[in-house]
Design a protein around this nucleic acid. Structure first.
Length: 464
DNA sequence: GGAACTCGCCAC
DNA sequence: AAACGTGGCGAGTTCC
């Protein structure tokens, strides 16, 4: 529901936005149908081989004898019964409904080699049955036409379906290559991706205006995640060019900073940091454990700093969390409290882009929704402007997709220089000019594929 | 035989 | 006091 003085502008954003997105839907993304069909077949062979291998193991025989009906090795329910009721493995992790979990994390923890076969099969099946078969089912004359919705997400973000273009694998290299190798530019064209850099952090800063955060997001040489890695892991001379330290920086970013922004708390962060990212065991630590560092391993380093167990580490992270919110970013904390109090008083919150969120919201919801929503609106505004530009100048480049803070274009190579300059101009200059509430610089990262190359072959693009 | 649910997992 | 936000989707399972 939109009911505020800026509702006309807010309305126009969604009106123009959905039209621009509909034009992208109509354009579509080129699919290599032959490749997908071939790959699905070869994946099927691999999956069958792995399943055959699994069925020969003692583990499987035991499972089979333990039950009366026929086994479905892909049934979480059956696996849960076998692992926790028959084999009586102690439940370390439960599902939301309280059953013993059988997800990746739970199975890895058990250290049963046969389960690794099952995990491999799961991954390959997902590639085949979710992504490749989805592409094939949805393609028309060699093009997929993902939908982009503006009316389904509570935070005012978009969603995508038929097929979902916003969850194609990227982090896992094998899955990324297989899935993204299916998607091509038009003949003679090249795929270009433009991503806002740290968009949600920048937009959050426009709400809370914490001076330390303003410095972090305004100074390209500063490095919040590096600083947090240095503090969390107690590194004297931190240098993100050192590969081992870069890993710690990734851990700090994805295992502490972002979860804290979303409202997580230190206990979860500590376990994820140490056991997930750092590969340390739960309980007491011994020398030589965990990921390697320039000298020794993570456990060696932490033990030398008097942190000898997950409990010690959790206490340490508790201190880091307190420092993070009370010393490093106190104005951010004040804003969170003020913002939530305001919601409790009025029953709604207002986004910087003029939209309202109301209804029952938790504290975390109140703090996250306006950031997610306004950040996506920056993307949508850019998308609309690019769509107008491409149509008014009758360019051959096409807008073909969008993933929350990034835009995918199918670029006519002769227009590449012009398009990338315009993307830069629109995102970094025009947008903050029009929306005065954007008080920190915005920046955009671009990556590109060679002419006629698929999406899996993306490289960094330096346009300046 | 389909609707609704749970679980697991992909993205940002 | 509470304790990570938003989606889509496939497969298995249960309910009617």
């Amino acid at each position: 529901m939109i009911y505020n003085p800026r509702s006309e502008e807010a309305y126009r954003l969604l009106h123009d936005g959905i039209l621009a997105l509909a034009r992208a839907e109509r354009q579509g993304i080129r699919l290599d149908v032959k490749y997908v069909e071939k790959k699905m077949k070869s994946l099927t062979v691999k999956i069958d081989d792995l399943e055959t291998e699994f069925r020969r193991t003692k583990f499987f025989k035991h499972w089979q004898h333990s039950m009366t009906g026929t086994i479905n090795i892909h049934s979480g329910t059956q696996l849960s019964v076998f692992l926790y009721k028959i084999k009586k493995i102690k439940i370390e992790k439960t599902t939301v409904s309280g059953q013993g979990a059988t997800d990746d994390e739970a199975l890895k923890q058990m250290n049963i080699p046969e389960l690794n076969l099952l995990l491999k099969v799961r991954k390959l099946k997902r590639i085949r049955d979710t992504y490749l078969s989805g592409f094939l089912r949805e393609q028309v004359d060699g093009y997929i036409h993902p939908f982009f919705n503006l009316n389904l997400v509570i935070t005012y973000r978009s969603s995508s379906d038929h097929p979902n273009f916003q969850n194609i694998p990227v982090r896992d290299k094998q899955s990324m290559r297989i899935c993204r190798k299916a998607l091509y530019p038009r003949p003679g064209h090249q795929l270009l991706e433009a991503d806002f850099k740290g968009l949600e952090v920048a937009i959050a800063t426009c709400y809370h205006k914490d001076p330390t955060m303003i410095k972090y997001v305004s100074n390209p040489k500063s490095d919040m995640h590096g600083d947090m890695a240095q503090q969390i892991f107690m590194i004297d001379k931190f240098n993100k060019e050192v590969p081992e330290y870069y890993t710690l920086r990734q851990a700090a970013k994805n295992g502490f900073v972002f979860p804290e922004f979303y409202g997580d708390y230190y206990k979860n962060c500590a376990v994820n940091l140490a056991c997930g990212w750092g590969k340390l065991p739960q309980g007491k630590w011994s020398p030589g454990q965990g990921i390697p560092l320039p000298k020794g391993t993570l456990s060696d380093h932490l033990i030398s700093n008097k942190i000898k167990s997950i409990d010690h580490f959790t206490e340490h992270i508790k201190g880091i969390e307190e420092h993070f919110w009370n010393v490093r970013f106190p104005k951010y904390t004040e804003w969170k409290n003020r913002w939530y109090d305001k919601y409790k008083k009025r029953g709604y919150i207002e986004l910087l882009t003029g939209f309202m969120c109301s209804g029952v919201m938790s504290r975390n919801d109140c703090i996250n929704y306006p950031v997610q929503g306004a950040a996506f609106h920056c993307l949508l505004w850019t998308f609309i402007r690019l769509d107008e530009l491409i149509r008014s100048e009758k360019l051959r480049t096409r807008l073909i997709g969008q993933i929350h803070d990034s835009i995918l274009l199918d670029v006519y190579p002769k227009e590449r220089k012009y398009i990338t300059e315009m993307v830069h101009k629109i995102t970094c200059f025009e947008l903050p000019e029009v929306w005065k509430w954007i008080i920190v610089p915005l920046d955009v990262d671009m990556s590109i594929c060679q002419i006629d190359a698929p999406w899996s072959e993306k490289e960094k693009y330096i346009f300046k």
